[in-house]
Write a protein that binds this DNA or RNA. Structure first.
Lengths: 364, 364
DNA sequence: AAATTACATACAATCGATTGTATTTTTAAA
DNA sequence: TTTAAAAATACAATCGATTGTATGTAATTT
């Protein structure tokens, strides 16, 4: 019979030098491999021994060092995420969904933000690579027009899944909503409310989502026999100031719009705020407004903002599931598959009702 | 002279087996230790050799494996963050600030969410420990009343810094705003607008921030000679439904309030929405409303919500700086130091102006 | 009781980098 | 030219776990 517990207290007092399986092994006069197998519940260790080992491990305050395990097993159990801004509602909810799925499957998540800048995105990609992430989830920066930093992952066999904003050139799965279709529906809705001159806030043309939304908008106009007027399109980065500048510009035109479809909620809300504070127009009477994304602000503003519901959480979850699937199955990588997540038009008061007389008068 | 580049293409084609310093060493007929030193710019390697090594490393597509380096150096260059919800604006902006500082100092950030549940917080803490994070930043869950899972870090010499919500029992630095003082100011402001019956939405009593805000509210009432009426305090988890239920309840009282100070914006906005949609009262005429945190919605809602500006980004940055300081200096750990970040009352229309006649009449 | 099998555990290499010490090469001084 | 000192590089152990192989012991079969 061994008496092994009397030195336990001594070991526990050792501050820095964490307890390793070798310490346990020494204490129990066993080999570290047996400890490892026991703690991993291998059938190669007797049940009774396992129990004893677990007991001692607990008493010694053993905590596994996953870094060591990962090095040995050549797996990091980590996935990397690059988003433009963590604090944007859409992205933070996507991250929330990603984290949810990842943790349930034993993966850690390392998060980086590109601040919508290409250079930072490249640095982030490098960091994630050095950390040997097993997969990447990303929504590309507004500034990104080269993609080698993303392609390197695919070349090395590390799966990559885009969500929301993707790089068409890169052969990777993408989880998106049908931007074209939903933008079409938004525009159609505005047309059906009797609007004649529908303006559009668009984002940087290199991003698919904005291109698609623009195309959906344009197609709807054409299908319903409205003239498409380039002067009605205001392209920007869709920040608050852009929304203000955009609406200011559009309302100053001789032939001003009677509706606005913004490619995101942020700019739409900024525009609405500007209209109600600094102009004599009212929403929706004089100008109907619709946004995109259904951010929390859309249901707070008065009148409620018509927008497109796009659940970041759901998109994040689906993207994470797909990524982990690719990691685990170790196949199917590099397919260009497109996963389309449901999105739907949410009609609120900002776009409903007949256009006001004012607009008609303003026309020639 | 060596001719070493002709086999490079062969190596580059090797998919899985990543290039290591040993591969470079073999190719250059050098020792891996020299490669390591060269890539780390050690003075022990000749400048010319370094240049050659860097060149070959690049050609072979070498990417360092930080996991291996970390294991050897006993450092993970990673800090862990546990927040209740990533998608809450305050937390996502705090994370944004944390990430900002961390990356500038070469640290990665692993993020977990507790969903405001104790059990998940414990699991998260365990995961972060296993990943050998060098420090922890956390804002504790609403449900947390035991703290061993946090204390273990301090016991093991891993610095921990609280931000926003802290555990008073745990001997760790905390980065907070002066909740008592600002809550006092909010209440004072409402009193100065001539409000007589000020209600309060409070959060779970085990969380310092809500306790402090409540105490600030109470103290202001006392200082200004108002009676403190427990019936005017509604305690909840401050979610949207809680805000609705709370205002419903308060307005149904025989002696209803003429002002509301909510411990967060979410519930305040929910209450305002309820008031304008389902009652005959108006804000601020019949009931003034103030919130806490200055979330984006506060400036979107009409009338604008009076609230307290509390920059998540700044708090996150300061907390991260402090944590990294503790990690690096390897001293000063376990001090109970409190770092107070500026916060200030933002007065908007929701609380300004004289109280309406209606209220006076309702009084005895 | 001898031989065979199954079971439990030990040994040793390995993952990819870092780092103290030893050795070789180069340079400078005698 | 010989030798000492300095510079450049090689050797080898290490971080903490995992895992294929070897070894020893107990259980089973003949």
């Amino acid at each position: 019979m061994y008496v092994i517990f009397n030195s336990v207290s001594y070991i526990c007092n050792m501050k820095k030098g964490r307890v390793t399986i070798h310490d346990i092994a020494k204490h129990m006069k066993l080999d570290s491999s047996t400890i490892s197998r026991a703690l991993n519940d291998s059938p190669r260790v007797k049940a009774k021994t396992k129990e004893r080992i677990r007991q001692v491990a607990k008493e010694l305050g053993y905590k596994p060092n996953v870094m060591a395990a990962n090095l040995r097993t050549q797996s990091s159990k980590t996935i990397g995420v690059i988003v433009p801004w963590i604090s944007r509602y859409f992205f933070s909810s996507a991250i929330s969904g990603i984290e949810e799925v990842a943790y349930s499957q034993g993966y850690n998540v390392i998060i980086c933000q590109s601040h919508d800048e290409y250079d930072r995105e490249v640095t982030n990609a490098y960091t994630l690579f050095a950390n040997r992430v097993e997969g990447i989830l990303t929504s590309v920066a507004m500034d990104t027009i080269k993609y080698e930093h993303l392609e390197q992952f695919i070349e090395e066999g590390i799966p990559l899944v885009f969500f929301d904003r993707y790089a068409p050139e890169v052969k990777a799965c993408r989880v998106v909503i049908d931007d074209f279709k939903t933008a079409y529906q938004v525009t159609e809705h505005l047309i059906k409310q009797g609007r004649e001159r529908i303006a559009h806030f668009s984002g940087p043309g290199n991003l698919n989502i904005y291109k698609d939304r623009f195309n959906g908008y344009k197609k709807a106009l054409e299908d319903y026999g409205k003239v498409f007027d380039p002067a009605m399109v205001y392209e920007s980065r869709l920040l608050i100031d852009d929304g203000i500048a955009g609406i200011k510009h559009l309302l100053s035109l001789p032939d001003r719009p009677d509706a606005l479809f913004s490619s995101n909620d942020l700019a739409a809300i900024a525009a609405m705020k500007y209209i109600s504070k600094h102009t004599e127009f009212t929403v929706p009477k004089d100008i109907a407004v619709a946004g995109f994304s259904n951010s929390p602000g859309a249901s707070i503003i008065e009148p409620g903002l018509t927008t497109v519901d796009q659940s970041g959480e759901e998109i994040g979850k689906i993207a994470a599931k797909r990524l982990i699937d690719e990691i685990k199955r170790d196949i199917d990588k590099g397919t260009n598959e497109v996963i389309t997540v449901n999105s739907k038009l949410i009609v609120r008061e900002s776009s409903v009702g007949k256009v006001s007389k004012l607009v008609k008068e303003a026309k020639p």
